[in-house]
Design a protein around this nucleic acid. Structure first.
Length: 100
DNA sequence: CCTATGACCATAG
DNA sequence: CCTATGGCCATAG
């Protein structure tokens, strides 16, 4: 099955809605976009974002709170700029995960 | 159609 | 904490 245009927008929309100083997991985003189980696809879409995108891609971490983005330094710097303190490349979901 | 490759995840050891 | 395993979805060759 190939993804539809709306399914992509739904993912982007959820990511765009992540509040500042909060993070969301790949799986969480997929579920909130009505596509539970497609966490892998979320990562794929993020990897294709244009460099100048305004989407807060830096607020996305894995289920363990780990920063898995290839551009680790930039993501960590952006999180710190928002007041989040990653420890050993990891964000404490207990304190910073977005829970609408 | 098949295999390989990911910014994934849950579970088990 | 770590690695291994099986499952997941989409894309590229």
């Amino acid at each position: 099955m190939h993804p539809t245009e709306e399914s992509q927008q739904a993912i982007w929309q959820v990511i765009a809605a992540i509040p500042e100083s909060r993070v969301a997991t790949y799986g969480q985003i997929a579920a909130m976009a009505g596509q539970a189980g497609k966490s892998r696809w979320v990562g794929q879409l993020l990897s294709r974002l244009p460099r100048e995108t305004r989407l807060p891609w830096h607020r996305v971490v894995n289920a363990s709170g780990r920063i898995t983005n290839p551009n680790f330094d930039l993501q960590q710097a952006r999180l710190i700029a928002e007041g989040i303190e990653p420890r050993g490349g990891r964000v404490l979901l207990k304190d910073h995960q977005w829970r609408p």
